[in-house]
Structures are given as structure tokens and as C-alpha cells.
Design a protein around this nucleic acid. Structure first.
Ligand code: ZN
Length: 548
DNA sequence: CGTGTTTGACCAGCGC
DNA sequence: GCGCTGGTCAAACACG
């Protein structure tokens, strides 16, 4: 029911709706590899980018394309374009291989005069090159898609790594009751943390994930997966070394400093971290006449997994008969982002439709509920609420996993939140031991983000496992700090939010090189005055007579 | 007129 | 069972 109106609304060009205008500092996600494998994503580019940015964007893309083409075939002297490739691929498929070209050639031969031999040969070569190029291009696309997936997974690992690192350190601490572990087993991890800094600085480095993975691999039944209920809180030192005493409930946005809070009543296995991995279910959702939230799957599945609370079903998108625990877990995990913004909502590149607003308890500011409208039945929702203590802070809580290709502008946030959710749900959260370790001194926070005060906070109170990325604190790093300390830079515009600050913060939080995330808030933040003019939505088909 | 937002009603979970 | 709360629905409304 609900999915129906959502779907219709979206299918007819929802892409041009609510798209923010002319992001001043918008960086081409395509150039950063986010568009890989998402044909649809490219469609959003022209609309999303203002004329001023178009050149940059196109140039970047062209460079990429050229580079890719040059890597395989030195063919640009023929002036081959992608359109040509498409056509040629068609010929290739119809005619077959070289022989077909040959025969085609001979056919032409009958007509063309003999002094066109050179031209014919050139043509033949061209055809060959084109077909080859087409094939390689296809191959290249697959490779790009593969690389893009790898990137996402890599990011997920990066998100998790600091937690693992800290946890292992804590393990060592717990075992020895000592602080320093030079030479102790797993000592290499001690070196990992400093390297994180280097990695951030240089924007490279694959050493960390490898160490991280290998370290994890050596501990098959590490406590990382044995987390039941746990609670870790930074900032205030509790010193408790067990999870026997869960902390008092905290507001979702509670962040007593740059600490890290971990909590979860139930944890779920690591969901696959791929965008569009739920595509297979999209058809079900689109075709389903029931509301998208209604879970056809019974609770027994949750019980089978032993983690899902009986509340989860509410958030499960409508699916086919096949149970999709993975989607369920992603839907349940929450990632909230705290960012300073005078705008009512940060622009994350996605399209949202507000479907509700409530006065939350303990907060004078209302909480707004949005759902993703980029695709029919997309289960992703988000809540936007201002922090009670500091109304300049906007807390955006994301939930769910997009079941559709994302525009480049939305990729950073999506991948970041997905990575965070993945980390949260993967069982990589520290158990009770981890909690004791970090209690009191922002230990994990510093481990995670040695050069930044932006931290990943894992809420202890939420009924759902929630990671909070706090982007509100000025990073001590020079560049970031500068960006933060100064009043809104040019690209911040009327919203008064510093995109560069957010970029830096998110980059730190995500633990990835800056360029990947600069685009996230490079867009102008949500500005109510620039609401998308083109909004198309068909009326709901079945008006219910609930109200008089 | 078609669209997104508003806002009160509805629903489920939870604690008592 | 009752009240509270969070989350969602959908008619009514506002807007371009
Ligand atoms: Zn979506």
C-alpha cells in the first residue's frame, strides 16, 4: 500500500526531485570510482551538477574513460567513441567474429572500386579494433564494478579495523594487566594505530587492512564474535571490566566527549557490504501490494538467528518468500551522523520524503522521519533531529540499505553508513572486555582516529545497534581545524555549515583517504530555500477511509 | 492540478 | 489492562 505510492512517485522521474542545486564544492564521485557499475548513477550527474561544475565533471570522466581505453587499446586515433562501441558490439554479436567482418568486407568489395583497398583495410582494422575495444570495454566495466565492490568492502574493513585493533590491544591488556605490549603477541597491531595516521596523511596504504585481516584470521573464535550485550562508554570513566552492569540508557545522540560507546541488545552477522546487493528483492518489493515495511518473514527466522529482536520485523522491507536476513540486519543497524548545520537537514545526495514527525521525549526539537524515494521500496529511512543540548547540531540517523544504484553524490554517505553498520553488525564490536578497556579515557576514540576528534560512537541505549559519527568537534589537524575554525567558507553558503569540516570529519571517521569523502558534504547542504522544484508524485491509488 | 509536507490517528513494544 | 513511547500511515493541506 505504502510502497505503491512510493513507487509510483519515484518511477516517474523522481531523480530530478529534491536534488540539491549547484553544490559549490561538489566533487565528481565518478572520478573517484563511485560510479562504477551503476549505470543509473550516471544519469543523475547532469542534473545534479550545475553548469559551472559540469566542465569539471565531464573532464574528470573523460580523463577516466580515456585512461581506461588507453590501458587496453591505443585506439583513440580512430576517434572511437562509446557510441561507436555500442554499435560495433551489436555488429559483433550479430555477425560473429573475424569471418563475419571478412564476408562483410567482401560484400563491400563488390561495390567499392579497387582503389579503395587501403580504405577497406583500414575499415577492417577499424572494425576489428572496435569489436576488440567493445569486448575490452565490457571487460573493463566488469572490472570496474569489481573494483568498486572491493573498495566498499575495503572501506568496511577500515571502519572495523580500529575497533579490532583496540579490542586486541585490550585483550592483551586484560591478559597481562599491563599497558604496553612491545614484543607481545599481536604487537604488530600496536604499530597499526600510528600507521593509520600515515595512511590518512598520504592517502594510501593497504597495509593496515592486511594486518587487520591476518590478525583477525589468527583468532577464529575471538571475543569479537562473542558479543552479547555489552556497553562501552567513553568520556566518563567507569572502570568496570565486565558487561554485567549495563550503563543507563543514553539518548541516541549522547556523546560525552570524544569517546566511543558501544551497545547492542542484539547483534547480527556481517551483512554483505555491497551496494545494490538487494536488487534481487527489488522486483518483489515493487510488485508487492503490501506495505514495504511489512515483513512477510515470520519471527522464527529471527529466532533462528538468535539476535533479532521481535521488533525487527517492523523494519523489514517487503520481500519475496525467501527470507533475507542480510537485509534485515542492515535495516536494523543504525548509523547516526552528528553534524553542525543550521540547515534543517544535511544533504547526503539521496532523495527523501518526509513521512512523519514526532516530538521525541527529552528533546524540545521534533524528530522528522524520512524515507528514501530514489527507488520503489527502498527500505532506507532516516531520522533527523536537532540535538537537545546544542541545537546547531543535526543528528541524522540512517537505517537500512539502499536497494538501488546511488548517484555519486550519495555514495560516500551510503558507503560510510553502510560500513559503519557493517562494522556494528559484524560482531566486531568489543565485548565486555573492550568496554573495560576504553572506559575512561577515550582510548578507542584515539585509537580509531588518532588525529581527529571526530569519533564513532556506538550508542548504548538505542534499541538498535547504533553507530554515531560525531562530526561536530573541530579536528586538531591543521587543515581540518582551519576549515572548522573559520566561518563558513565560500562553499558553505547560506546553510552555515562547513562542508570541508564535515568532509574532513567524515574522512577521518570513515578512515579513508580524504578524496573519497570530500564529495559527501561538498554539496551544499540541504537548503530549504532551494527545494527541488520538480517533484513528481502520483496520487496514492487507494485512499483509505481512516479519517472522517 | 500534482506534488511534498503537515499532523493527528493508528499501531506495536515495553514497563508497570 | 493501561499508559507511555517510538514509529508509521494517510487525509488534509500548502505550494508552485
Ligand atoms: Zn534508497
Amino acid at each position: 500500500m505504502e510502497s505503491s505510492y512510493l513507487g509510483k512517485r519515484r518511477m516517474n522521474g523522481g531523480a530530478d526531485r529534491e536534488t540539491p542545486r549547484a553544490p559549490a564544492a561538489f566533487l565528481p564521485a565518478a572520478a573517484l570510482g563511485y560510479e562504477c557499475g551503476h549505470a543509473e548513477a550516471a544519469h543523475h550527474l547532469p542534473r545534479r551538477v550545475a553548469a559551472g561544475e559540469m566542465d569539471f565533471f565531464k573532464k574528470e570522466k573523460r580523463e577516466r574513460k580515456d585512461a581506461a581505453a588507453a590501458a587496453f587499446v591505443p585506439s583513440d586515433e580512430h576517434g572511437i567513441k562509446e557510441d561507436d562501441l555500442t554499435i560495433n558490439m551489436g555488429l559483433h554479436h550479430v555477425g560473429g567474429k573475424k569471418s563475419s567482418i571478412r564476408s562483410e568486407e567482401s560484400t563491400v568489395d563488390d561495390v567499392v572500386s579497387s582503389d579503395n583497398v587501403d580504405h577497406r583495410e583500414t575499415k577492417a582494422e577499424l572494425a576489428l579494433a572496435k569489436s576488440e575495444l567493445g569486448r575490452l570495454n565490457e571487460e573493463n566495466k566488469q572490472l570496474k564494478d569489481f573494483v568498486s565492490r572491493l573498495t566498499l568492502k575495503y572501506n568496511a574493513f577500515q571502519m572495523q579495523m580500529p575497533v579490532y585493533t583496540t579490542l586486541l590491544q585490550q585483550q592483551q591488556r586484560t591478559n597481562n594487566h599491563r599497558a604496553l605490549l612491545r614484543g607481545a603477541p599481536g604487537h604488530e597491531l600496536m604499530n597499526v594505530v600510528p600507521e593509520t595516521k600515515d595512511q590518512e596523511g598520504s592517502g594510501g596504504g593497504h597495509l593496515l587492512p592486511r594486518q587487520f585481516i591476518s590478525s583477525i584470521g589468527t583468532a577464529p573464535d575471538d571475543p569479537l564474535h562473542s558479543m552479547g550485550s555489552y556497553a562501552v562508554r567513553g568520556g566518563d570513566s567507569s572502570g568496570s571490566t565486565s558487561n554485567a552492569e549495563p550503563p543507563p540508557p543514553q539518548p541516541l545522540d549522547y556523546c560525552p566527549g570524544n569517546g566511543l560507546m558501544v551497545s547492542g541488545k542484539d547483534l547480527m552477522p556481517l551483512p554483505a557490504f555491497e551496494h545494490g546487493h538487494q536488487q534481487q528483492h527489488l522486483a518483489h518489493e515493487m510488485g508487492s501490494s503490501s506495505r514495504a515495511d511489512e515483513p512477510p518473514q515470520p519471527h522464527h527466522l529471527a529466532a533462528q538467528q538468535g539476535w533479532l529482536s521481535n521488533k525487527v520485523h517492523k523494519f523489514l522491507p517487503a520481500k519475496g518468500p525467501e527470507p533475507v536476513p542480510e537485509a534485515a540486519t542492515m535495516r536494523k543497524a543504525r548509523v547516526s551522523v552528528r553534524a553542525r548545520s543550521e540547515a534543517p537537514m544535511i544533504n547526503d545526495g539521496c532523495q527523501w520524503r518526509k513521512y512523519g514527525q514526532k516530538m521525541a521525549k527529552g528533546n524540545p526539537c521534533p524528530r522528522a522521519y524520512y524515507r528514501c524515494t530514489m527507488a520503489a521500496g527502498c527500505p532506507v529511512r532516516k531520522q533527523v533531529q536537532r540535538c537537545a543540548e546544542d541545537t546547531t547540531v543535526v543528528i541524522t540517523t540512517y537505517e537500512g540499505h539502499h536497494n538501488h544504484p546511488l548517484p555519486p553524490a550519495a555514495m560516500p554517505m551510503a558507503s560510510t553508513t553502510a560500513a559503519a553498520a557493517s562494522m556494528l553488525l559484524s560482531g566486531s564490536m568489543p565485548s565486555a572486555d573492550g568496554g573495560s578497556l576504553m572506559a575512561g579515557s577515550n582510548f578507542l576514540a584515539r585509537a580509531v582516529l588518532p588525529c581527529s576528534s571526530n569519533v564513532a560512537t556506538i550508542s548504548a541505549s538505542a534499541p538498535f545497534p547504533t553507530v554515531t559519527l560525531d562530526l561536530t568537534q573541530p579536528p586538531p589537524g591543521a587543515a581540518s581545524a582551519t576549515a572548522f575554525a573559520q566561518p563558513a567558507p565560500a562553499q558553505a553558503r547560506a546553510t552555515g555549515t562547513e562542508p570541508s569540516q564535515l568532509q574532513a570529519a567524515l574522512a577521518d571517521a570513515a578512515g579513508r583517504p580524504m578524496p573519497l569523502t570530500t564529495q559527501l558534504f561538498g554539496q551544499k547542504l540541504y537548503d530549504p530555500s532551494s527545494k527541488a522544484p520538480a517533484r513528481r508524485r502520483t496520487r496514492r491509488a487507494t485512499p483509505s477511509a481512516r479519517r472522517p
